[in-house]
Design a protein around this nucleic acid. Structure first.
Length: 287
DNA sequence: AACAATTACAACCGCCACCAG
DNA sequence: GCTGGTGGCGGTTGTAATTGT
């Protein structure tokens, strides 16, 4: 617990931002209890972390949410509830605080969101022409095991789960919705958005199949596009689960899915879900 | 111009889970 | 197994900026 009345509170100054940024660049993220001392800031660890995570971190996307982002937020919220970090982990450049604020302002508040349009919004708009059919992958071995990775021991942990990825693939007439460990934050593939991903699609170790360099397409775009695709088109689907992925566990715990699949199927890491189930889970977008 | 109401979002707070000792 | 330290989360509040009257 921080010592109230000792540390500075309130809005951050530019000087404080600079000190914090320099500190993080020098020592890296983490060890937040040491950050105030290292940076020479009279702030508590939580305040430093929050400032970095929500404001100073590179590749933070600001400005209006695009329609696609709003769409995805609505779907993921339906799927995950108020688990903003999970939702934000699937929105490149957006923070949990951003998503939470947006939701509370526009969705709960029933206001009309201001959507980013074109260049002025500085937000990439994903169109159907960007769709690249993803290859199925499995969520299996190779998950991080250290304390600070985002994959282990996360069954019931609310946090540390943004590394998991939900991917919908289609094969013939059937579709599968996979949970995998990739980073959706590919607006800038070189970004050090490490807090949201322990595994990266750029890392061959993390992929069960090789990927030619010219096929290093934007995984985020793939995922987005296919999520939009499935929700627009419906169709039969199966859901693959991983017992190491928190979202998988959450989904397995959801009666909508659990009821539609047998226990054996769940134990096998896969259960079938009817088109209506998927539609119910992800939901059609209604603007 | 002045004031009130509303909006947007940064920041704080309390809580929980994990880990090391 | 217990405890303290830590990281991280969601809920809530505070407040500057904007809009309306």
């Amino acid at each position: 617990m921080e010592k109230k009345g000792v540390v500075k509170r309130g809005a951050w100054t530019k000087e404080e931002d600079t000190l914090l940024r320099i500190c993080i660049e020098k020592f890296g993220e983490g060890k937040w209890h040491k950050v105030p001392i290292r940076a020479g800031l009279n702030r508590c660890r939580k305040s430093c972390r929050l400032r970095w995570m929500n404001y100073l971190r590179p590749n933070i996307k600001r400005g209006y949410f695009t329609k696609d982002e709003v769409d995805l937020i609505q779907r993921l919220h339906k799927l995950l509830g108020n688990r903003w970090s999970l939702i934000a982990g699937r929105l490149p450049g957006r923070t949990a605080n951003d998503v939470k604020n947006f939701w509370n302002t526009y969705i709960n508040g029933k206001r009309t969101p201001q959507l980013g349009l074109g260049e002025s919004s500085k937000v990439k708009t994903i169109t159907k022409t960007n769709i690249i059919r993803p290859r199925p992958r499995t969520f299996s071995e190779g998950l991080g095991s250290s304390k600070n990775t985002t994959t282990s021991n996360v069954h019931n942990r609310r946090s540390k789960s943004s590394s998991s990825e939900l991917q919908i693939t289609r094969s013939g007439s059937s579709e599968s919705l996979k949970l995998m460990s990739v980073s959706p934050s590919d607006e800038n593939p070189k970004s050090n958005n490490a807090s949201s991903c322990a595994l990266s699609p750029e890392d061959p170790k993390n992929m069960n199949q090789s990927s030619p360099s010219d096929e290093k397409v934007d995984e985020c775009v793939q995922w987005w596009s296919n999520l939009l695709d499935i929700t627009e088109n419906g169709g039969g689907a199966s859901i693959l689960f991983s017992d190491q992925d928190p979202v998988s566990m959450d989904l397995m715990a959801m009666p909508e899915i659990g009821d539609s699949g047998s226990d054996d199927a769940i134990e096998d890491g896969m259960c079938s879900s009817s088109p209506d189930d998927i539609w119910e889970l992800i939901g059609p977008y209604s603007s």
